[in-house]
C-alpha cells in the first residue's frame, strides 16, 4: 500500500523553481531517505507533503488524502518534526507532550499513560518536569521526535532530525526511528549524513529541485558503481549549479 504519492510536484517562488516536477511513491512501513545538498529543495518538498505549503503544480497524496484538497485530513494522519526545534521552550517536557496529545484528540487519561511510556522509551523519566529550554540539544531532538509520533500517526516526516548532534546521539536517534517503523509508522526523513542514508530502506537524491536517483542503497551503489552512499552523493551533487555562487 502506498502512503505517499507525489506526481509532478512543483513549487515555484517567483522565478525560482524550488521543487522541479518530482514524482515518487513511498510504501507503508518504509524508512524513506530524502537526500540532497543544502538548498536542493528537500524541505520545500516535505512542507508540501505535510500541507504546510501549497504546490504550484502537480499532485500529491499522503495517507490517502490529497495534499491540496484535504490538507487538514493529511495533517490529522501525519507527524512532523521540523529542522528548527519547534516545541515550546517555556513549557515542561510533559506539558509539551500533553499539549500535542490534546490537540490530536487523545483522551486525557490516555495522554498520561502515553507520556509515561514515551519518556520511558527515551530514558528521560527524570526530566518529566524539566523546562524544555534547559534540555541538552540531543534530548530536545528526541523529545521532538517523541512528540511527532505521540498520536501514532501513519507517517512521520523528519526534516534533518539529527543536525548538530554527536554521533552517539545520532545512533540513539536512529534506534528510535527503527522502533517507530516497527510499530508500522512510515518514516520520511531528510538528511545529509550519508551514513544515515545506509539505514534507509530506500533513498532518493535531490539535486537542484529534481530527483536524480531513487532506489535502495544497495541498488544505488551498484548503479553508480560506488562503494558507499557518500560517493554517490558526491557524483550527483557535483552537478548542482545552485548554491555554488
Amino acid at each position: 500500500m502506498k502512503v505517499i504519492e507525489a506526481e509532478n510536484l512543483t513549487k515555484k517562488f517567483g522565478q525560482f523553481v524550488a521543487v522541479d516536477n518530482i514524482s515518487f511513491q513511498v510504501e507503508k512501513g518504509e524508512i524513506f531517505g530524502f537526500l540532497g545538498a543544502n538548498g536542493a529543495g528537500k524541505t520545500t518538498a516535505m512542507r508540501m507533503l505535510c500541507g504546510l505549503s501549497k504546490p504550484t503544480s502537480g499532485q500529491g497524496k499522503v495517507a490517502g488524502f490529497d495534499i491540496e484538497q484535504q490538507p487538514e485530513k493529511v495533517k490529522a494522519n501525519i507527524g512532523y518534526m521540523s529542522q528548527k526545534f519547534a516545541l515550546y521552550e517555556d513549557l515542561r517536557v510533559w506539558e509539551n507532550l500533553r499539549l500535542y496529545g490534546g490537540i490530536y484528540g487523545i483522551p486525557s487519561r490516555e495522554i498520561n499513560e502515553k507520556i509515561h511510556a514515551a519518556l520511558a522509551q527515551l530514558g528521560i523519566e527524570n526530566e518529566k518536569d524539566t523546562m524544555v529550554k534547559s534540555l541538552p540539544l540531543g534530548w530536545k531532538q528526541k523529545l521532538a521526535f517523541s512528540t511527532a509520533i505521540f498520536h501514532d500517526p501513519k507517517i512521520v516526516f523528519l526534516d534533518e532530525p539529527t543536525g548538530g548532534v554527536d554521533p552517539l546521539a545520532r545512533r540513539q536517534f536512529w534506534e528510535l526511528i527503527y522502533e517507530a517503523a516497527d510499530r508500522g509508522i512510515t518514516v520520511f526523513v531528510t538528511t545529509h549524513y550519508m551514513d544515515e542514508a545506509e539505514y534507509c530502506n530506500r533513498v532518493s537524491v535531490m539535486v537542484d529541485g529534481k530527483i536524480e536517483a531513487l532506489d535502495s542503497p544497495k541498488n544505488l551503489k551498484k548503479q553508480f558503481d560506488a562503494k558507499n552512499m557518500d560517493q554517490i552523493f558526491h557524483q550527483l551533487a557535483r552537478k548542482a549549479t545552485r548554491g555554488n555562487n
Binding site: L52, E72, K75, A76, I78, Y80, A86, L87, Y100
Partner: peptide, 14 residues
Amino acid sequence: ENGTIEQMNVTPVQ
C-alpha cells in the same frame, strides 16, 4: 519567529 507556530500548523487544529 521561534518556529513553534509551524508545529501547530502541521496539526489538524482549526
